[in-house]
Write a protein that binds this DNA or RNA. Structure first.
Lengths: 247, 247
DNA sequence: AAGTGGTCTAGACCACATA
DNA sequence: ATGTGGTCTAGACCACTTC
């Protein structure tokens, strides 16, 4: 592989290391480097793109954080063998379903501004009197009901319900409230009569319940979502990565 | 807060940025800085400990990856408000149970070297004829059965069963095969008769099934574990972090 | 011995926040 | 205006892998 010095534009407001990471990612995805093969050494990349080694390492670290590359000291930096999707994170239902090759649909049950419950007030760290947006949805995969989702968002974060597009996460990103951390609680349970009706299953069938609280970089809670997934059709897949994969 | 230049030892083989991260973490946990308060600026830390800014930033990035700190551009670096446990990762049953303040116990059902099943051969990417170590355990929390775990490890990674201490993960770390990435599949299900007997529950009760494959930094599979948790007592808690929290 | 990633320095300029 | 984090450079030495 050989990059040209011209691929990085100093005038571009995007940091050099992100530009370089994007170029490398594109090149690898385009088949420029096979899985298991080494990318050029850090010093070679410095020469090729005209950047310092710190910058090159930062670009590589980003792709390592995504799971696309891994380093071997004294040997080189290599393309991971993973078949998996690239480093999306904190994905919503739509992205996840698309990634599995299924079509995602939504039946809206609720979309309103309301007073928070006591629990929601605590979870979302709301100030007295602050309102919330409630989103109730039945989620379909390949045309069949798969999950019930009930999301609660502080109104201060999503002041206008009309701003809400197809994807909640895409909307939040646009509004500068992209969630970057969170906590999920997952447990096995049995379906209630209401859930059974909405999901077209029998009452008392196994259900996977997921409770998710996500936060912005400044730790402000963004979204509290409770979901109930059909236990017979849904498997929660979870990629693990140690905190020090990159640093 | 004021650090002394003497806290960092150049002769120590531990990198400076890790020494500094450890000192900062200890200082914060000892109550030296309250949640929400700012730590000293990066340049101040440089002066105080006699390190370059790159090194100081790397130390801080590590603590951000752990979730202990967060940065606000133009403003400062602050201690996160979380009450949660520090940044352990890919935790095993023992660590997790301890963290909840419960006592963890184990009843061994199996500890042997055996031929892998076809599925295990594929999952663990074994070469022809390679054997595996099987560990079958009932896990107790506060004296009551909580889960059944069945772990499979390539014999090449754990050649001597006597090396196995109380914690599988601690042993793997010692052997240089610390898992750093992995994939988990979680689903809701109902207990079989055998599981019900082992867990002291009724047959057909809700069960949370977890399947986990972990890998080393060089992508070699380390451990394939299937677990069955009592649905009425166990909640799987999962912290989320975007890939770019640090870089 | 040569090449690779791992660590580290001492500067510099920019964008943003706070006052 | 000052201080903060965000980016970037051009070197250096070390530890490890490979030949």
């Amino acid at each position: 592989m050989m990059f040209e010095a011209t691929i990085l534009e100093a005038e571009n407001s995007t940091p050099l290391y992100i530009q370089l990471a994007n170029h490398l990612r594109d090149h690898i995805h385009a088949g420029g480097i096979r899985s298991g093969s080494a990318i050029p050494s850090e010093r070679d990349l410095c020469d090729q793109v005209g950047a310092s080694r710190v910058t090159v390492r930062k670009a590589i670290s980003r792709l390592i954080a995504e799971g696309l590359l891994f380093r071997k000291q004294g040997s080189g930096t290599f393309v991971s063998s993973q078949i998996e999707a690239p480093g999306s994170f904190l994905t919503g239902f739509t992205e996840e379903t698309d990634a599995r090759g299924e079509s995602a649909d939504t039946i809206w049950m609720m979309k309103s501004v309301a007073k928070p419950s006591e629990e929601e007030q605590v979870m979302l760290e709301l100030s007295q009197g602050e309102l919330v947006v409630r989103l109730g949805r039945v989620r379909l995969a390949s045309g069949e009901p798969l999950a019930i989702e009930h999301a609660v968002i502080p109104q201060s974060i999503l002041p206008d319900l009309d701003q809400l597009g197809a994807s909640l996460y895409a909307t939040l990103e646009l509004l500068g409230s992209r969630p970057v951390t969170g906590t999920q609680k997952i447990r096995a349970s049995l379906s209630t009569a209401t859930e059974a009706a909405l999901l077209s299953i029998d009452e008392g069938t196994e259900i996977l319940r997921i409770e998710r609280l996500t936060r912005r970089a400044d730790d402000k809670p963004v979204e509290f979502t409770r979901s109930a997934y059909r236990g017979d059709r849904y498997v929660f897949v979870n990629k693990l990565r140690g905190p020090y994969a990159n640093i």
